[in-house]
Amino acid sequence: MVRESYRQQLDGLLEFVCGMGQLVVEGLNKGLQAIRDHDRALALSLEPWDDTIDQMALDIEKKCTDLLALQQPVAVDLRLIVSVFKLVTDLERVADLAVNLGEYSLVSEAFVLVPKEQLLQLGKIASEMMNDSLEAIRTRDVARAKQAIARDRVLDQRCWDLRTEVLTQIIRRAGHANTSEQAKKIADNTITVLWSIRDLERVGDHAVNICARTIYWLTSNPEFI
């Protein structure tokens, strides 16, 4: 039956998106783990993994294009496909950020400026937001998507606080740098930590985007986009 096959394709698309999302969250967690354990091998494993994610994103775009061309979806089905088109980019970007986190973990002593635990706390929130956004898709749960969006303020505030803390530490430590070598080390550490904070904040932003598209798909409400 043609329409039954169409519905199966739509369900399959959603399943594929959730599957890709699950892998992205796993990658994000590995990036955080690499920072926590200073695990070089784990960090290096993320780069080839990202190629797989990129290919999955392309596969999803192809599925969307086929559905648009062959099934002429309308209403909720059309909104689903348009939303998937957009949110797959967010998933792919989160994977890139996970690779970044792995790379930052390779910089020796990168996380001496502030307790590593504080950075990992940010990572935990960002990872949970991603999980919630995917769960909202899987269970078609608008309330859960809205909760994840609301949580972004908490993440933003924590990122800001930690950034302030890093700057305080720089000012304190810069005065103690006796050689240009020491000053360079402090600068490298500063940049790496600030980039890590920025990337985790961006993971939260991508989770918000995914939730906003999910709400649009399910309700046609574009308010959060």
């Binding site: 329409r3 169409y6 979806p73 309308v74 209403a75 059309l78 909104r79």
Partner: peptide, 17 residues
């Protein structure tokens, strides 16, 4: 009607349910 129908019956019809 085709992007955001108000009524579920409309949506079910145009999406082929």
């Amino acid at each position: 009607i085709f992007e955001n129908p108000d009524k579920k019956q409309t949506e079910d019809y145009i999406t082929g349910k």
